[in-house]
């Protein structure tokens, strides 16, 4: 607590309007990034091609569909990262859920009508995804395994199991309802995007409006304080990793629906993008800060960069550079606002 010994420097949080303004801007940095990117691509598109980038519903939908899978992983990771943990296993939990959902839908389809078979598949995918999440939670809360190590182990386990179940290949699903779920539209909006938006609202509610969310912030800031306040911290941590696995499971189920196939490696390339989305969204990997809406902006930033650079036909490797630069700027902004005694929540 030595940071608090100097009393003069932070005597009154209301003392400086300009400082507060900086802090407010920093909190919204992911949305600012997004706005800047959209302005950039819009300008480029109009100048070079004489067409709009942003106001094309086709582009908007393409980007939204692209962002679904990494965002779903990032939603769960937002909770885990705010609590001061990390979940490296989400990518392969997603793959596992995709494979299970595919197998279960096919299996149930042999005796049930397609709609019921789809429900069985979805349920099976989500329930099985909770397994690794439960083990993660027990490892971290009961056996005091550091989250990095515990979930890294689960990464391997989920990956191995998914590959074994899939037999090293993709598992095709033939179920018209399931395919419609993944690729259909309602009132012109892709169903998977609608589901994701609803899920985002739910997660935003849980994080910002419930005790569960409040305790997640408290644990991330000061685990001892949370314990002394009577919060059952181990139980809370177990629930966090279950939630993270559930989000990954939903990602896997929607993947299987969209590609009408379950693939063990479905989520493998998404892990880093999802963590990047959380960090760009304003969360600190040290815990205690972050928001769902920030994460949404973070995921959109990454999707817009990747989609937009293809759109303007830039050499593909610049995508990695661009995402990396945004992450670094984001972390620098975070450091700066901390120095200014910023509002971290």
């Amino acid at each position: 607590m030595s940071a608090h010994t100097s009393t003069e420097s932070r005597a009154d949080p209301t003392q400086s309007r300009s400082r507060q303004l900086i802090v407010r801007i920093a909190a919204l940095r992911a949305w600012l990034f997004l706005a800047l990117l959209l302005i950039f691509f819009e300008t480029w598109s109009r100048v070079s091609y004489g067409q709009t980038f942003l106001f094309s519903s086709y582009n908007a939908q393409s980007i939204a569909i692209f962002a679904v899978a990494p965002l779903l992983l990032a939603l769960g990771s937002t909770f885990v990262i705010i609590s001061g943990g990390i979940d490296l296993s989400v990518g392969f939990i997603m793959g596992l859920a995709a494979v299970i959902a595919a197998h279960a839908t096919n299996l149930a389809g042999q005796s049930l009508p397609p709609f019921a078979a789809m429900l069985v598949g979805i349920t099976a995918g989500l329930v099985v995804a909770l397994g690794p999440g439960f083990v993660n939670g027990v490892l971290i809360s009961k056996l005091k395994v550091p989250p990095f190590i515990g979930t890294l182990g689960m990464f391997g386990v989920a990956r191995g199991v998914a590959f074994l179940l899939a037999g090293g290949t993709t598992v095709p699903v033939s179920n018209s309802w399931f395919a419609a779920l993944g690729n259909g539209r309602v009132f012109g909006f892709p169903i998977i995007v609608i589901i994701t938006v609803l899920f985002v609202l739910l997660m935003h509610y849980v994080l910002s409006q419930t005790r569960f969310g409040q305790h997640t912030y408290a644990i991330g800031a000061n685990e001892q304080a949370a314990i002394r306040s009577g919060i059952n911290v181990p139980r809370h941590i177990r629930r966090l990793y279950l939630l993270s696995a559930l989000c990954a499971g939903l990602g896997g189920v929607l993947y299987a629906a969209r590609f009408t196939a379950g693939a063990a490696q479905a989520g493998e390339p998404l892990l880093l993008d999802s963590i990047a989305a959380v960090v760009i969204g304003g969360a600190s990997l040290f815990g205690g800060s972050g928001t769902i809406l920030g994460t949404v902006a973070g995921a959109l930033v990454i999707a817009v960069i990747q989609y937009g650079l293809v759109f303007i036909n830039v050499e593909p490797f610049w995508q990695f550079v661009a995402v990396g630069v945004v992450i670094i700027i984001s972390v620098l902004v975070d450091q700066t606002q901390r120095k200014l005694g910023g509002d971290r929540q």
């Binding site: 393409s62 569909i65 692209f66 590609f259 493998e268 390339p269 998404l270 989609y307 937009g308 293809v310």
Partner: peptide, 11 residues
């Protein structure tokens, strides 16, 4: 990443 491949095609 088939997700990325899909997005690239759309773009």
């Amino acid at each position: 990443d088939s997700n990325k491949a899909a997005s690239q095609m759309q773009s």
